[in-house]
Structure formats: structure tokens, C-alpha cells
């Protein structure tokens, strides 16, 4: 009886709030169920979050499993693994969706391996087909898409890339809430505390004009060049991760998933390839200009204006012209 099977979405939340990726997964789950009539349910792991569970139950799923345990107050690998393993064994869902976030990518492989289930990570699309599951992922820093065929199996686990699907909306229908006390073993990893980001000298997330520099700049001393351009434009200087990793600019200037999200009037990307983790932090900029010598760099896929050229020729020319007037 295929019709009664379920798509289980694992909620991600922090600080008593659902994270957006949860709603994105729910939207995708409902889309998949619409064609085949699968039930959609949501698993929320935590403690002392009944308000969040109540709130979440309005997003159009059939059931919410609240896996409630003191040990689940903060994320803990072994606790998540034990709790989800129990639930998946019990409910035998056809498909389990997990966010491809720092948390999701930590526990998804452990759950999958411990149940011997196939796992496809960081997917930007998926489709249940007769011969199993078809997923789409990006490889080589976003330059290539790959379609994978997951062989037929009793269940599948997929982690979905955040910000790809639109979030689900609230509905009139409240889901049934099932409270479960999961059985957990002794955790070998233990949460200690959160560490907040450093305070910035300049808050790039408020900037209107951003000149952002990537690995294409080559060397530390070349940073001066883009600094000069930022000044000539009257904007602030930001960077992709490798620049920050190398210690050439402070962490507070990093744009992307693990840095700042920016939404300036102008985002001028110089020598940045446009990896997903970078793009997540700037794709909602109003106007995007990219200078890159590689015509196939993914940054051009989201740029309004593209210049395929050596930055060491274009940037000095730009500075010159801007200073002229």
C-alpha cells in the first residue's frame, strides 16, 4: 500500500524558533505528496518548546512528532541519531528530508549509516520515480549539475539545500501532535555553549555599495587595489571566505552562509567564483556586477552585468575613470 506511506521532514530550530529551511522542506514534501498522496509529517526534536510545536502544526502537514527529552534541549549528535533512528524504524517513512545545514549535515550521515539507508546530500531537487529516487546536486563549486539515481530501497534520506525552495505557508488545518519520549543512550558529544560572532568595525549588512573581493586577487598586497576601488565608489570592502581564512581581511567582512548576509544596491564581485555558500549571502542584492576571467564561473549566473576579464586590467581602469570626474 504505497499510498499510506509518509514523507518525514526533520525540523530545524534554534532559540525556540523554527528555521526557514524547515518550511522550505515542508513545501517540497507537500509537492511530492500531492502527486502520489503520501502523508507529510514533521519531527521536532527538543525540550520545553511546546509553543514552537504548536505553531509549527499549522503548516499543512498531517502529523507532528514531538520528540521530547531533556537531552535534546541543544543539538547533540548521538541524541539526534538515537531519537530519529527510533522514529524511522517505527514509522517506516518512504522519504526523510533534512536540511543541509551545519546541524543537518552533522547527523544525517549517522542516521543513514546506522539504518543502512541511502543518503543523498545537498540536493537542489528530487523526484520519486518507479526505479527509486532521482536527485539533483551541484558539484565542482557549482559549475556542474549532477543527476543521481538512488537505487530502490525501503526508505531514502535526502538533505535539501537551504534557500532553494520557497517556504510553505500557514494553513487553516492543524496537524495532529504526537508526543514521544525517545530512548537515548549516553551521548559521546555534549553541547557546551554558543559562541557569538565578533562585533564588526563596519557592519557590511547595512552597506548600500559593496565591493567584494575573492581568491582571484591572488596576494595579500593586492587587497589595496580593491580597497582603492571601494573608496572611489564610496562603498565598503567585503570578501569571500578564502580572503578571510588567509587573514587578509577580518571575519566581519565575510559574505556568505557562515558570514554576513548582505542586500546592497550594488554588489560588485571581483575574482569571486560564486560558490553556493557565498551566493547565499548576497543573492538578494539589488544589482550584481561580476568581474571574473572565467566565463563559466557560477557568479555570472546571478549577475546583472558581467565582465569576463582580468581583474588586474579592469579594476585599475575603473579606479582611473572614477577619479577623473
Amino acid at each position: 500500500m504505497v499510498r499510506e506511506r509518509e514523507i518525514l521532514v526533520v525540523a530545524e530550530h534554534r532559540g525556540k524558533e523554527l528555521r526557514e529551511v524547515t518550511l522550505e522542506m515542508l513545501r517540497k514534501a507537500k509537492q511530492l505528496s500531492g502527486q502520489a498522496g503520501y502523508r507529510v509529517s514533521l519531527a521536532i526534536l527538543g525540550y520545553g518548546i511546546s509553543d514552537l510545536v504548536e505553531e509549527a502544526s499549522w503548516f499543512g502537514m498531517d502529523k507532528v512528532y514531538y520528540l521530547k527529552h531533556r537531552e535534546l534541549e541543544h543539538y547533540c549528535l548521538d541524541c539526534y541519531k538515537d531519537a530519529l533512528k527510533g522514529l524511522i524504524e517505527e514509522e517506516n517513512p518512504l522519504l526523510v528530508l533534512i536540511g543541509h545545514t551545519a546541524t543537518g549535515m552533522d547527523f544525517a550521515p549517522s542516521v543513514a549509516m546506522s539504518l543502512n539507508l541511502p543518503l543523498a546530500t545537498d540536493c537542489i531537487d528530487l523526484e520519486l520515480i518507479d526505479s527509486g529516487l532521482k536527485v539533483t546536486r551541484q558539484v565542482y563549486g557549482g559549475k556542474v549539475n549532477v543527476e543521481l539515481q538512488v537505487k530502490p530501497h525501503k526508505s531514502y534520506i535526502v538533505t535539501l539545500r537551504p534557500t532553494v525552495f520557497r517556504p510553505a505557508e500557514k494553513t487553516e488545518r492543524k496537524a495532529q501532535i504526537v508526543e514521544i519520549t525517545p530512548r537515548l543512550g549516553r551521548p559521546r558529544t555534549r553541547f557546551v555553549r554558543y559562541v557569538k560572532p565578533e562585533i564588526a568595525d563596519i557592519d557590511i549588512s547595512q552597506a548600500e555599495l559593496i565591493v567584494s573581493v575573492g581568491r582571484g586577487i591572488g596576494e595579500r598586497e593586492n587587497i589595496k587595489l580593491v580597497e582603492e576601488l571601494a573608496e572611489a565608489i564610496g562603498g565598503v570592502l567585503a570578501a569571500s571566505r578564502p580572503i578571510v581564512d588567509s587573514g587578509w581581511l577580518p571575519k566581519t567582512r565575510q559574505v556568505g552562509q557562515s558570514g554576513k548576509t548582505v542586500k546592497p544596491k550594488l554588489y560588485l564581485a571581483i575574482g569571486i567564483s560564486g560558490s553556493t555558500q557565498h551566493v547565499m549571502g548576497m543573492k538578494n542584492s539589488e544589482f550584481i556586477v561580476a568581474i571574473n576571467k572565467d566565463r563559466n564561473a557560477p557568479i555570472f549566473d546571478i549577475a546583472d552585468v558581467g565582465i569576463v576579464s582580468d581583474l588586474f586590467e579592469v579594476v585599475p581602469a575603473l579606479i582611473e575613470l572614477l577619479k577623473e570626474k
Binding site: V144, N145, V305
Partner: peptide, 19 residues
């Protein structure tokens, strides 16, 4: 458990004005 079906260049929806 998984095999590659095909690889292709991402399909670009946005129109970029190349100078």
C-alpha cells in the same frame, strides 16, 4: 546505493548583460 545518471551545466535563468 547511488549512480550518476547524467551531468550537465546548470541552466541559467537570469539574463546577464556581458560587457
Amino acid at each position: 546505493k547511488m549512480v550518476v545518471r547524467r551531468m550537465y551545466r546548470p541552466i541559467v535563468k537570469k539574463e546577464t548583460n556581458f560587457l
